[in-house]
């Protein structure tokens, strides 16, 4: 009985450890290379003068993600020239969510006039490594001598329904802090989003 208890606790611990995978603020991160909508492989290194990156896991089908498209374009236009370009990554399996297929990504990006790379996480390894759980889900990384560092994880702002009613721009505040040589505060926020669609093992 005692043994069973210990095994159960051990198992629960293991499970919760698995559940906690993914980057946390302060972690060093690895870059990635994924296929962009222009059919070319895109690597973060291609933004040569970047001080960091705004990685946004987003997609076509999710209404919360759609509601943020215009805001993401505006953020890219404002912060790319300051050194923090947006890199959008679609993490969804299109066999589960057909609206998130590669061709639909091209259609959507063209229709909306995306100003940033829109990449397909085809083998779904990048979102798992980052620990993204939903769309949209933002990870801001800074680029320094020691590599890429996670500086902010969370939401874009405090109103998913109406951009004109936003009171706190969490992502922009984080980027402004980094540009001023400070640490984002808060550096971790949450938002309602669409679960990422992947096949369970």
């Amino acid at each position: 009985m005692k043994r069973a208890f210990i095994i159960t606790i051990g198992l629960l611990f293991t499970l919760s450890t698995f559940a906690q995978t993914g980057y946390k603020v302060g972690d060093m991160a690895r870059g990635f290379e994924l296929k962009n909508i222009d059919s070319e492989m895109f690597s973060l290194r291609q933004f040569k003068s970047a001080k960091g990156y705004v990685i946004i896991f987003t997609c076509n089908h999710c209404r919360y993600a759609k509601a943020y498209e215009d805001r993401i374009i505006a953020i890219d236009q404002k912060y790319k020239k300051l050194g923090y370009p947006v890199v959008a990554v679609n993490p969804n399996d299109s066999t589960i969510e057909p609206d998130d297929s590669y061709s639909k990504m091209i259609e959507r990006a063209t229709e909306k006039g995306f100003t940033f790379p829109y990449l397909l996480d085809a083998d779904q390894s990048v979102f798992k490594r980052f620990g993204a759980t939903k769309t949209p889900h933002v990870f801001v990384m800074s680029r320094g001598d020691e590599g890429l560092k996670i500086e902010y994880i969370g939401t874009i702002d405090d109103n998913y329904a109406d951009a004109s009613e936003v009171k706190v721009k969490y992502l922009e505040n984080a980027l402004d802090a980094l540009l001023a040589g400070e640490k984002p505060d808060p550096n971790f926020t949450k938002a309602i989003g669409c679960s990422i669609k992947y096949k369970k093992d």
Binding site: A19, T133, K134, G154, T155, D158, Y160, G193, S195
Partner: peptide, 20 residues
């Protein structure tokens, strides 16, 4: 209540915010 960051943790601190 569109300011979800203010209440997600009050439902469950381990909830990332993804639905369902």
């Amino acid at each position: 209540d569109v300011n979800a960051n203010a209440w997600i943790n009050k439902v469950d601190p381990n909830w990332s915010g993804a639905i369902p």
